[in-house]
Design a protein around this nucleic acid. Structure first.
Length: 412
DNA sequence: TCCCACCCAGATAAGTGAAC
DNA sequence: GTTCACTTATCTGGGTGGGA
């Protein structure tokens, strides 16, 4: 006789939509309850008289977007805990546990479940009217931010074993093929312990950005159901911070004034700190480190910065300690590019600072360095067969810069 | 309670410019 | 070119407080 580990119950609740209860077939009848927030929203919206259209578990149309957002926000209200408990109680005893323990036995033994949150997913979907546009934006985002954020884990995972069939691109041209994939395409995947952030396409027109809490015990809150609304609110903050960081790094800018005052000393509290000199490799490593840690939902400490600087610069263990990191962080605090998170000893990057730091790195690495390098004598060789639009910009700039250098009398 | 990271102050190293 | 004085950057020690 086959041994059954667990039973799955699929229930349709009028308030919460589709619920899955996965229950162990033997005592103590441990159970997992899986809810879909989109289903809950859909049901609540219908009850509130809103019309919504869903596609690939994503709302693509609604009669009242503000109203729908308001309903979604109820999930982070304290009352949600009571409603969730009520929902679980409503189904788990009478419809699931009854197969192992009838109602009379349940009452006699005083059997009761204690609920806690284990996993949570929070996502934001962007619906594009043009699939091509979505791909262009997605590819640009990945190209620009991947190296700047030091995303080691940027993957392209296909739901199928084989890659999607893409027609061969014409030589010397770049383009985007838009298909209607039958698989989910993961493009961006960032891990922070048991928390991950993903950006992936959901069908042809939907770009989904998702926070996954693999284990709620790794968040600042308890796993108890009481903290569920706080957890939802926290996941929302994480997602928004991630989007902010991506946006700042992607569209970076440094003002003329900030550039001018960069080497000038500043003060933090009563302490005077030096200015920022990006010609020093150590400072460049620190700025890169801050950019790479900027998406961390919990901010970063001086110790984490020192570790990251050592790993980025390939420095030995005793070369750059946390005291030095704290000193460098203080310089950035003096410029108001980073700040302390409340009273804690952790830091977070300020949006303006993030833009400035990213701009400085881009200017140095992607503009000045390649142009200066290209002013030397170029070795004659075969032209590359594949070029991106950015290569054409570099070629044009190089030619103009060579003329400018000649006029200015700079030796090339 | 203990550890770690912060702040502050003082010490030291490095850089700069004037005088010789 | 060398020396010296001054400024600035960085490091270090001691005290302190937050958080595990």
């Amino acid at each position: 006789m086959p041994y059954v580990n667990h039973y799955s119950f699929h229930i349709w609740d009028t308030e919460w939509g589709h619920i899955t209860i996965k229950m162990s077939g033997h005592p103590p009848f441990g159970a997992q309850i899986i809810l879909n927030g989109h289903d809950y929203l859909s049901c609540a919206a219908k009850q509130a008289g809103l019309t919504v259209t869903k596609q690939a578990n994503c709302f693509v149309q609604t009669s009242d977007a503000a109203g729908l957002t308001k309903i979604a926000d109820t999930l982070s209200e304290p009352e949600t805990e009571g409603r969730l408990r009520e929902l679980c109680d409503r189904w788990i005893y009478s419809s699931c546990l009854i197969f192992g323990l009838d109602l009379e036995e349940q009452q006699r033994s005083g059997f009761q479940y204690r609920y806690s949150t284990y996993q949570l997913e929070y996502c934001r979907n962007f619906y594009f009217s043009s699939g091509r546009k979505m791909w262009e934006i997605l590819q640009r985002l990945v190209d620009r931010t991947r190296s700047r954020l030091d995303l080691k884990v940027v993957k392209t995972i296909f739901g199928f074993k084989n890659r999607p069939r893409v027609k061969r691109l014409k030589q010397n041209k770049w383009g985007v093929e838009v298909e209607t994939p039958t698989y989910d395409l993961t493009v961006f995947h960032v891990h922070y312990g048991k928390l991950s952030l993903k950006i992936y396409s959901k069908g042809e027109f939907i770009l989904r950005i998702e926070v996954m809490v693999h284990n709620a015990s790794d968040t600042p809150f308890r796993r108890s159901l009481v903290d569920f609304p706080k957890l939802v609110s926290w996941a929302k903050d994480v997602l928004e911070r991630f989007l902010d960081a991506l946006q700042c790094v992607d569209v970076c800018f440094i003002s003329d004034e900030a550039m001018e005052t960069l080497p000038e000393p500043s003060t933090v509290g009563k302490t005077r700190v030096g200015g920022i000199d990006l010609n020093r490799p150590r400072m460049r490593l620190v700025v890169r480190t801050i950019l790479s840690l900027s998406t961390s939902p919990t901010g970063f400490s001086a110790r984490e910065v020192s570790r990251k600087v050592r790993s980025l610069g390939g420095l030995p263990e005793d070369e750059y300690g946390c005291r030095q990191a704290a000193y460098d962080l203080k310089k950035l605090r003096g410029k108001e590019w980073i700040r302390r998170k409340g009273n804690s000893r952790r830091y977070e990057a300020v949006a303006e600072g993030l833009r400035s730091m990213a701009a400085l790195i881009v200017l140095r690495d992607d503009v000045i360095k390649p142009l200066l390098a290209a002013q030397g004598r170029l070795k004659p060789g075969r032209r590359p067969t594949q070029t991106a639009p950015i290569d054409a910009h570099y070629a044009a700039l190089r030619s103009q810069m060579r003329k400018l250098f000649l006029d200015l009398g700079i030796a090339a």
